[in-house]
Design a protein around this nucleic acid. Structure first.
Length: 453
RNA sequence: GUGGUUGUAGCUCAGUUGGUUAGAGCACCAGAUUGUGAUUCUGGGGGUCGUGGGUUCGAGCCCCAUCAUCCACCCCA
């Protein structure tokens, strides 16, 4: 038998890691709940047609598809062969695969809303914390299975939702102690107007992909890429003037008004930005007109959260407004806006910046030493009393040298050692030793719980 | 999907131009120590050198393939 292994980009999480991850989840959940979001879970797999075509061409390629069962059944073999031919041609085939692992939480959520819009109370505010899967090559901060934490509001056009979600970001990162994060905002309408200003709305995708890279590759390479995409010098000139907008939020707003203010869409986008920013004067938020975000379905505000520059992680969260997501599933006129947290990346950032609290790893509070068969029977009864009081404790599993029992306690980060030997039984008390300070004292059995708590 | 990096004991890593029986530190186990975490000393167990082929009298080392890893691109959280 070959050595056991797990698939590429998948991970086991040790106890220590799970505790740290749970710490992040609990903070995020707390904030979601106090802003009035309700939990939702959807299945790991969706019908393939629910997912295909929603994330662009690249996205389709990265969806994990699940092979149908029963392909070897003689009844299905003709179909399966035809289907396989189709696959080889690069088309998809229901005969071979009709289910897939979910790629994000937003599309399954839209599917859920489309299926249940009759029952839901709008605006519907839901949060969802689940795994998603992408068949991407793993690298730093990128895994094939990772967890997203989303909060969305659907059924409301009000910009107050954007304001609320920005506060959600702020509150979560504040609670996690991740102070130097950077929340950026832009509006797709402004990007769209830039494309119109260049003479063709269809240029939007190419333009956004190129300018999104500005801080990574610099202005010259962005211009080169635009040139390669077939833009002419006067178009590139417009974009360059757009990219040269810098300064405080107010400065940037007045500059964009000068450049694109005559465009109706731009006016709308600018108005929205202004509204959101004036309601967010308590927190740090930066306009970034180069912010584009990949997903095609965004139509209004877009958000992105960058990790502190010192850790080189890039995006740890993102979101935005979409006008008609459920329209993809035949239910029109349900606009929405949402944000997402990349927990796995937040974990990596917090690990690197050492932001996890020390006391997360304390599991067992007290270890009862095993001093022999009779003694441990006695100790067991006392231990069960402590457990009734909610104190996590355990009895060392066999009679061993004290040295060994101490080492076990030390490794498991256990706070107290409780030693009950024949002497102690006679005196109706136990030795309670604090393993971090090294102090020990005799404690009557009936006071043990109180001392340990 | 494209390009590169790495893979030797539980962990971190040495290992010469291809040449006897593959090493170290840490960890683990036993003892010195029959009720208090240390230190020290003595002894011990552990490896199909990622996997599968090939070249060679001979491969941890060279070649091919494959899997995993990390990194960059694409894209993205």
């Amino acid at each position: 038998m070959s050595k056991p292994s797990i698939p590429q980009g998948m991970r086991d999480f040790s106890s220590e890691t799970v505790r740290k991850r749970n710490y992040i989840f609990s903070k995020i959940k707390e904030v979601f709940e106090i802003y009035g979001f309700q939990p939702l879970e959807t299945p790991a797999m969706e019908n393939l047609e629910t997912l295909m075509g929603k994330y662009g061409e690249e996205g389709d390629r990265l969806i994990f598809k699940i092979l149908n069962n029963g392909l070897n059944d003689p009844k299905n073999q003709e179909k399966a062969k035809d289907g396989f031919e189709k696959l080889l041609e690069g088309k998809s085939s229901k005969a071979i695969t009709e289910r897939a692992l979910k790629y994000d939480l937003t599309i399954p959520f839209a599917r859920y809303v489309a299926m249940n819009h009759g029952q839901l109370t709008f605006p519907y505010k839901r949060y969802q914390i689940q795994q998603v899967w992408r068949a991407d090559r793993p690298q730093k901060g990128r895994y094939r299975e990772f967890t997203q934490c989303d909060a969305d509001v659907v059924g409301s056009n009000a910009l107050i939702n954007e304001v609320e979600l920005a506060y959600v970001y702020h509150d979560v990162f504040t609670r996690l102690g991740l102070k130097e994060y950077c929340l950026k905002i832009n509006n797709r309408k402004i990007l769209a107007s830039l494309a119109i200003e260049c003479g063709d709305i269809d240029l939007l995708t190419n333009i956004t992909i190129a300018i999104d890279k500005l801080d990574k590759i610099g202005i010259d390479k962005v211009k080169l890429e635009l040139e390669q995409k077939g833009l002419n010098p006067s178009q590139i000139n417009v974009i360059e003037r757009y990219l040269n907008i810098i300064g405080s939020n107010d400065d940037q707003l007045s500059q964009i008004e000068t450049l694109l203010g005559s465009n109706e869409q731009a006016q709308e986008g600018i108005k929205e930005l202004k509204y959101i920013l004036t309601h967010l004067n308590q927190i740090n938020i930066e306009i970034d007109f180069t912010l584009a975000r990949g997903l095609d379905y965004y139509t209004g505000s877009i958000f992105e959260v960058k990790a502190p520059a010192s850790v080189q992680m890039g995006s740890i969260g993102g979101g935005g407004r979409y006008d008609n997501l459920t329209g993809l599933f035949g239910v029109p006129n349900i606009p929405g806006v949402g944000v997402s947290f990349g927990v796995d990346r937040i974990y990596d950032v917090m690990e690197e910046m050492q932001l996890f609290p020390q006391d997360l790893q304390i599991s067992t509070k007290a270890l009862f030493f095993n001093m022999g068969e009779k003694e441990s029977e006695y100790a067991y009864k006392i231990m069960q009393e402590l457990r009734k009081d909610g104190i996590a404790c355990e009895l060392y599993h066999e009679l061993s040298k004290l040295d060994k029992q101490f080492k076990y306690a030390e490794k498991k980060n256990i706070t107290y050692a409780v030693i009950i030997g024949s002497k102690e039984i006679e005196q109706n008390c136990a030795i309670l030793k604090n393993l971090s300070s090294g102090n020990q004292e005799n404690i009557p059995f009936n006071q043990l719980a109180e001392k340990i708590k």
